[in-house]
Design a protein around this nucleic acid. Structure first.
Lengths: 135, 135
DNA sequence: ATAAACCCTGTACTATGGTACAGAGTCAAG
DNA sequence: CTTGACTCTGTACCATAGTACAGGGTTTAT
């Protein structure tokens, strides 16, 4: 299997596959006599692993760690759990931040909709104004 | 007021202030005879506006737009509302994505904790496994 | 008058996750 | 046997939001 087929199969850009290899996420495959990458069928599995892990919120760095840990699979469960917990914490933090943003922004939008006066934008006012207008 | 004082006052890095100026978020201030930026007191207000807007989830691009719109403040309320709505939509999308990640990851972690068997990590198993490494 | 502290521009680098392009070599079909 | 599709490496570039540094000039206090 050459890189183009792997790309089609996994729906991942060729450049991205080579990028993953550089990042250490894909094991450098055997090469044909002319230097073409020759992937075994496992490669598809591996690429999908990477994409699934990304969907779970792991960074490429963490995914690399995960793959390292996979090598001594039996003893690494604890370490993997740690990574997952770190990802979860990060996700929770982001959700909290975003919710805070959302509620603040939501308030401003309500003010905008109610249009208490016609002459100024409540959103800009509530932001304090960029300088000409002391809030 | 020179740039260092503005930086201290707003708790924003000097480099960042110059970056904001390049991005068009800060009006280029007057210069002293020797070329030093000389800010008026409004500059503090302006920098704080930028930071507050960032906290609401606006990108620097959008903040730039907001500042443009501010110029014709009366007629721009609608346009501002549009930006805010875009930011809100983006925030909601992110929250949804993150919640999906969190619930998936949470399931795996539960499996990890319950440790149904001692010999393999459920998290890696549930990810499908990275493919047996031929190395 | 000299040293510390400050400021200037321009450029390059950080992290994150890729994408694009140049210029060369290789493979398969007509 | 040539054309088109594919692949190779290396390098540069995209967005985002900055940060750092080199190599100068300026201001201020002693």
């Amino acid at each position: 299997m050459r890189i183009g087929e792997l790309a089609t199969e996994t729906d991942v850009n060729i450049q991205t596959l080579r990028y993953y290899e550089r990042r250490g996420l894909l094991t450098p495959p055997d090469r044909s006599a002319s230097g073409y990458r020759a992937y075994g069928p496992d490669a598809v599995q591996r690429v999908r692993f990477v994409r699934r892990a990304q969907e779970l919120g792991f960074t490429l760095q963490e995914i690399g760690d995960l793959l390292m840990l996979w090598k001594d699979s039996v003893r690494s469960c604890h370490a993997v759990e740690g990574r997952a917990r770190a990802a979860l914490t990060r996700i929770n933090t982001k959700i909290t931040d975003l919710k805070r943003m959302r509620s603040a922004l939501g308030k401003y939008l309500v003010a905008c909709e109610q249009r208490p006066a016609l002459d100024e934008c409540p959103l800009l006012r509530l932001l304090g104004g960029p300088g000409e207008d002391p809030s």
